[in-house]
Amino acid sequence: MNTAAIGGSLQEPEWLSRWRESPLPTDQGLFRFDGLGSVDPDQMTGRWRGTGLHTGHPLDGLLEWLNWYGKSFETPEIVHPLLFLGRSGDIFSIDPARVPLHWVLRGPMLARSRAARKLFAVSRYLLRSGGPTARLRKIEHRGVTSAAIVYDRQPIIDYLRRIDDDRVLGIMDLRFMPQPFFFLLARDGFERAG
């Protein structure tokens, strides 16, 4: 790993710092993903801060625009894959099945409008999940068996690879979406992911 201890925490790998600053083409993102090792589902326990890593994907920046917080893993069977930050600082879980992904992917600029952001804030109580909406499983993807988030009611699998003990790189694979969406998760309390 290209990390070094600094003040009790791990320095971010140089490639990740560059990616945060400037989008990568999808093939280069996949090259980085493929170079990382596996992560076990049990190592994901806890709450994680999330941020998108841009590749020119229609979802780039959208989750952050809507105040995405990250993901929570209580156990491999109890996963909350979409946590958002409320105006008062509360963290709440959204049911991914209630998110109109087809609409968002067809009109990403409309989804980034102030009106859409207000609508999301107002309707967040309708979007809330009543419990876990995904599970963690070990799945082989791109030649490596690693933890993956399998959504209960959406055709989505988030494949995860280990950067270090407190950071993972993920790619969202949605059945009808040809390009993967890349994201970074950092263990809550380790560092802010974005």
Rank of each mutant, 00 (worst) to 15 (best):
M1F: 07
M1P: 12
A4P: 00
A5E: 10
A5F: 08
G7V: 02
S9R: 15
L10W: 14
Q11A: 15
Q11F: 03
E14Y: 07
E14V: 13
L16Q: 01
W19S: 00
W19E: 03
S22E: 14
P23A: 10
P25I: 10
Q28D: 13
L30F: 05
D34C: 11
G35V: 01
L36A: 05
L36V: 05
G37I: 01
S38F: 10
V39S: 08
V39D: 02
V39L: 11
D40R: 05
D42L: 12
Q43K: 05
T45M: 08
G46T: 09
R49E: 14
R49S: 04
T51E: 08
T51G: 09
G52K: 01
L53G: 13
H54K: 12
T55K: 06
H57R: 07
P58F: 06
L63C: 12
L63W: 10
N67I: 03
N67C: 14
G70M: 05
K71I: 09
E74C: 03
I78H: 11
I78A: 13
H80K: 12
P81N: 05
L82G: 02
L83D: 08
G86V: 02
S88P: 00
G89W: 08
D90C: 03
D90Y: 02
I91Y: 07
I91G: 08
F92G: 13
S93N: 14
S93L: 02
R98T: 15
V99T: 15
V99L: 10
P100S: 10
P100N: 13
L101N: 01
L101D: 07
H102L: 07
W103P: 00
R106S: 15
G107C: 09
G107N: 15
G107Q: 11
S113N: 12
S113D: 12
R114W: 14
R114Q: 14
A115S: 14
A116S: 15
L119N: 11
F120S: 10
Y125I: 02
Y125L: 05
S129T: 14
G130H: 10
G131K: 02
T133G: 04
A134W: 03
R135H: 09
L136N: 01
L136D: 04
R137D: 02
K138G: 07
K138V: 07
I139G: 01
H141C: 12
G143Y: 04
S146E: 03
A147Q: 02
A148Q: 03
V150A: 13
D152Y: 03
D152P: 04
D152S: 13
R153N: 15
Q154P: 00
I156T: 07
I156S: 01
I156E: 01
I156G: 01
I156Q: 03
D164A: 04
D165E: 15
G170R: 05
M172R: 08
M172D: 02
D173E: 06
L174T: 13
L174N: 02
M177E: 14
M177A: 11
Q179N: 11
P180F: 08
F181I: 04
F182T: 06
L184S: 04
L184P: 00
R187L: 10
R187C: 01
D188K: 08
D188H: 11
D188M: 10
G189D: 09
A193M: 06
